[in-house]
Write a protein that binds this DNA or RNA. Structure first.
Length: 396
DNA sequence: TCTGGGGTCCTAGGACCC
DNA sequence: TCTGGGGTCCTAGGACCC
């Protein structure tokens, strides 16, 4: 059964969702979403008008301000994005039983086995899909169609904005030949620079080489690159699996040197991670602490627990111990801390009940589910971990 | 005001085991 | 007589993606 994958990519998703939710932004052509003017963040998305000034996702906000001081900078809100994304998914699910959201603004649809239904082209389906998404959610999208995920995605990239492109089976190599290697998934800035030093910049160059020749240049990576250059990659859509990690991190509005203040923030971040684990009925066994020094030197420290947990206290205990170890280095280097974060990984599904669980742990579990209920009703900050009180009092 | 936040996957070395 | 070899688990870091 021939694979046929459709990739839907929403155009300027974050910008458009902000416009829908904040009508005062609608008349503003030059709109940049991601953080306020003075934030230490990066651009999440920019309106097409702002992009003409060279602003793009991932660019530091400060740099975007310099490129286009007259632009409006807006922070945006995750729940709004999430709700908009779900609304789009609901439309997509009417077109295929297999819809995999790759992120908030991207989805893959499986059309394998539709050769009789649509013997020639999927473009008419894509057109209807685009119109229905537009009509029901007010959002524009671009759609790429291909024999696998990679080609479908590259096709939608080429089609942006508001375009459709189909690459039929057999035409992958020709389509890819005109692209830079950097366009291939997995070829980021570092790899692209390394390949460029070897004289490789375009997909057609890799296509023209033998695998042995490429192997002499690249070693073990040759095979994977060769496959991608010829248009292979992701013929099936795998169902969604358990997440691999749950994390929260924050870049502080100013660099901090006070460990107590940092521990208070760590307590809040850990409570968020624990809350998400419980919400998704997961438990984590490995706790990772992340610290970024003010000179951008970044370290992680991790610890694997005896038993997986979703309890604030157990996660925090591990996180704090890791923090104290890592903070000793910060102090030794006489630096401040720019970013602090915590992650739970090594995840499993939370067990229904454990008959042999010690009673004190049972009490903690009851406590956290009570906290979860209050938070569900009144918001996360209605309950604050004691360890975070100092931070709350100071900066709220 | 340079450089976010949430993820995924991979590598490499050490410990430990058989 | 100097050191095998595979597998698994663990930690730390890094590239990449949106």
């Amino acid at each position: 059964m021939a694979a046929r994958i459709l990739h839907v990519d929403l155009d300027a998703f974050f910008v458009e969702v902000c416009r829908q939710r904040h009508p005062e932004l609608r008349g503003i052509e030059l709109l940049v979403v991601g953080g306020r003017r003075d934030s230490r963040g990066v651009v999440q998305s920019a309106s097409y008008a702002a992009r003409r000034f060279g602003i793009h996702a991932g660019m530091p906000i400060g740099q975007a301000v310099r490129l286009c001081p007259e632009a409006t900078f807006f922070r945006g809100s995750f729940p709004h994005y999430r709700d908009a994304s779900r609304a789009v998914r609901a439309v997509l699910q009417r077109f295929s039983p297999t819809v995999v959201m790759a992120s908030l603004d991207e989805a893959y649809l499986d059309f394998a086995g539709t050769d009789r239904l649509y013997p020639v082209s999927l473009l008419p389906v894509a057109e209807r899909l685009r119109d229905e998404v537009r009509r029901e959610t007010g959002l524009d999208c671009s759609i790429g169609i291909g024999p696998n995920r990679m080609v479908a995605k590259l096709a939608s990239d080429s089609a942006k904005p508001r375009g459709l492109m189909e690459v039929r089976a057999g035409w992958e190599e020709g389509f890819l030949a005109g692209l830079p290697l950097r366009a291939l998934p997995g070829i980021g800035p570092k790899t692209a620079a390394r390949l460029a030093e070897l004289g490789l910049a375009e997909v057609h160059q890799v296509q023209a080489m033998t695998e042995d020749g490429l192997e002499r240049l690249l070693g073990g990576e040759a095979r994977a690159l060769k496959r991608r250059a010829h248009g292979h990659g992701g013929a099936t859509l795998r169902a969604e699996r358990l997440p691999r990690s749950v994390s929260r991190e924050t870049t502080l509005s100013r660099d901090l040197r006070d460990p107590e203040e940092l521990e208070a923030i760590l307590a809040l971040l850990t409570a968020r991670v624990a809350g998400q684990l419980r919400e998704e009925q997961l438990v984590g066994r490995t706790v990772t602490l992340k610290l970024r020094h003010d000179d951008f030197h970044t370290v992680t420290r991790r610890r694997t627990l005896e038993t997986a947990t979703d309890l604030d206290g157990e996660l925090y205990q591990a996180a704090r111990a890791l923090f104290r170890g890592a903070f000793a280095d910060v102090r030794r280097r006489n630096r401040g801390v720019r970013l602090i974060g915590v992650a739970a990984s090594n995840l499993g599904v939370a067990a229904e009940a454990d008959l042999f669980e010690p009673p004190e742990r049972q009490r903690l579990r009851e406590l956290s589910s009570a906290v979860d209920k209050v938070r569900e009703k009144y918001g996360f900050s209605s309950v604050t971990p004691a360890a975070a009180l100092r931070f709350r009092r100071r900066d709220d």
